[in-house]
């Protein structure tokens, strides 16, 4: 009690100093400081380290070879067949998955936005795939599409689309498409959720005005819904592209990049280079290329969609 009393009388207590500090503009920097340190430690440092090892020889199984090699890995990459296949597959994989996810996400969001009876429950159900870890989703689909026991094969044979069970992941013609469908199934709730939030933000009056003006559902969608969701779409696509390019887990579970590199993508290739060949230098270079490609994509995309304006 007495100490408290003293504190309020003496102007120079630590609390008072802190109080005074909070009135100055340094306070903001002080508050940012912890998160800045954290960012530096867990983002900036690993990123820089990645750049550094990409110009070094770093093969765990060859401790003697350590040293600077400059652009060696990048030069080697230019003539690395698997790199080019992976690059092409990454582009196909990301583009196709996003296209499907955006479409499904939109349909789901519009349906959920109707507020019909049962949409609450449906809303939870639709989000379920997203709650599943990629690895779990991968194993589940591996079983669903299994060439021996798969329910999907069974259904397709029963309704006459297939004559015999198909090994979807064993045929290079269908492996990538099959994995894309699984990824899209897993990822579309992300778009549904964001689009739903976006749709809720569009004033009802706009649709009423359009109805009075005589614009049909298609025009309303094109002239109101899409433009009003532009920012949400742009942000969601960027986030999803980044996560798709960076996460090889589903492919690792479903195909391991096979058959014969038919489903090899950059992230999986970098992962395998690092953890199967223990060639961290080359894996680092692959990751740096992914990083640069993603940065380029994000910059160009943001420019094109003008989302930073307004």
């Amino acid at each position: 009690m007495r100490r408290d009393h003293m504190k309020s009388v003496l102007p120079r207590g630590p609390i008072t100093l802190l109080g005074n500090l909070s009135e100055t503009r340094y306070w903001v920097y002080l508050l940012l400081f912890p998160s800045l340190i954290l960012l530096l430690l867990v983002v900036a440092y690993p990123t820089l380290y990645g750049f550094v090892i990409s110009v070094r020889e770093m093969r765990l199984t060859r401790p003697g070879l350590n040293g600077w090699v400059g652009m060696k890995h990048y030069v080697a990459m230019m003539s690395d067949r698997v790199f080019w296949i992976s690059l092409k597959n990454t582009a196909i994989w990301v583009t196709a998955a996003i296209a499907i996810e955006v479409t499904l996400g939109f349909v789901a969001a519009v349906a959920l936005n109707r507020n019909l009876p049962g949409t609450k429950l449906f809303g939870v159900l639709i989000l379920l795939p997203y709650f599943l870890p990629n690895v779990v989703a991968g194993h589940m689909w591996a079983l669903l599409l299994d060439p021996r026991l798969g329910v999907i094969n069974d259904l397709l044979v029963r309704i006459g689309i297939l004559s015999t069970y198909k090994a979807w992941f064993a045929d290079p013609a269908t492996a990538l498409a099959a994995t894309i469908l699984v990824e899209a199934w897993h990822g579309f709730p992300f778009f549904a959720l964001l689009f739903l939030a976006g749709l809720k933000g569009i004033p009802e009056d706009l649709y009423k005005a359009a109805a009075v003006d005589g614009a049909g559902p298609v025009r309303q969608f094109r002239l109101i819904t899409v433009p009003m969701l532009k920012t949400v779409i742009a942000a969601a696509v960027i986030l999803r592209v980044i996560s798709l390019v960076n996460s090889p887990d589903l492919l690792l579970v479903l195909t391991g990049g096979g058959p014969g590199n038919a489903t090899q993508v950059l992230s999986l290739y970098a992962f395998q280079t690092a953890y199967r060949e223990f060639n961290f230098g080359y894996a680092g270079a692959l990751s740096v290329v992914m990083f640069i490609l993603l940065m380029l994509f994000a910059t160009i995309y943001i420019r094109l969609t003008h989302v930073t304006k307004e």
Binding site: P203, D205, L206, K208, A209, A210, L223, P227
Partner: peptide, 11 residues
């Protein structure tokens, strides 16, 4: 019709 929120087409 004229709306409270004006309902102008933003684009």
């Amino acid at each position: 019709m004229v709306f409270q929120s004006y309902a102008l087409y933003p684009t």
